[in-house]
């Protein structure tokens, strides 16, 4: 029986990675966002921490503080989730355990993001 499929068609999608261009690019884009926000995050933290509860509340309650924290937490957890997924796909060999680990990672990441964002919004909108 003759084979009508092209060589390229036969190998497409069966490499080790199978996919991941989107993850590759968004990992780097979120890295750029984090690199821009990081100095503001560290400066804000350095100013707020000595003030204890009131200092931290003032920081999170200010528009710039809330903006920096929301951006940092969002880009950070997005970037971190992609990074942990990469670690999982490097070291977890069985497909089942890999899927379970990645779903757990997604649940933890999204939960932490929601907890953090809701907390920032509560403080900022209540300030």
């Amino acid at each position: 029986m003759s084979d009508f499929r092209t060589d390229l068609g036969k190998v497409r999608g069966i490499g080790a990675a199978k996919g991941g261009v989107h993850e590759f690019i968004t990992h780097r884009v979120s890295a750029v966002v984090l690199a821009i926000l990081l100095p503001f995050f560290v400066c804000g933290l350095m100013k707020a921490l000595p003030g204890g509860y009131d200092g931290l509340m003032a920081w999170v309650g200010s528009p710039t503080g809330a903006f920096v924290l929301l951006g940092f937490l969002t880009a950070g957890i997005y970037h971190g989730r992609l990074g942990i997924n990469e670690v999982i796909s490097d070291y977890v060999q069985s497909t089942g355990m890999r899927s379970v680990s990645m779903i757990l990672n997604a649940l933890v990441s999204v939960s932490a993001w929601l907890i953090g964002v809701l907390a920032i919004l509560k403080i900022w909108l209540g300030a």
Binding site: L73, A112, W113, A119
Partner: peptide, 8 residues
């Protein structure tokens, strides 16, 4: 995220 929740 957890510390922010405790703060809020």
């Amino acid at each position: 995220a957890v510390v922010l929740a405790f703060l809020a």
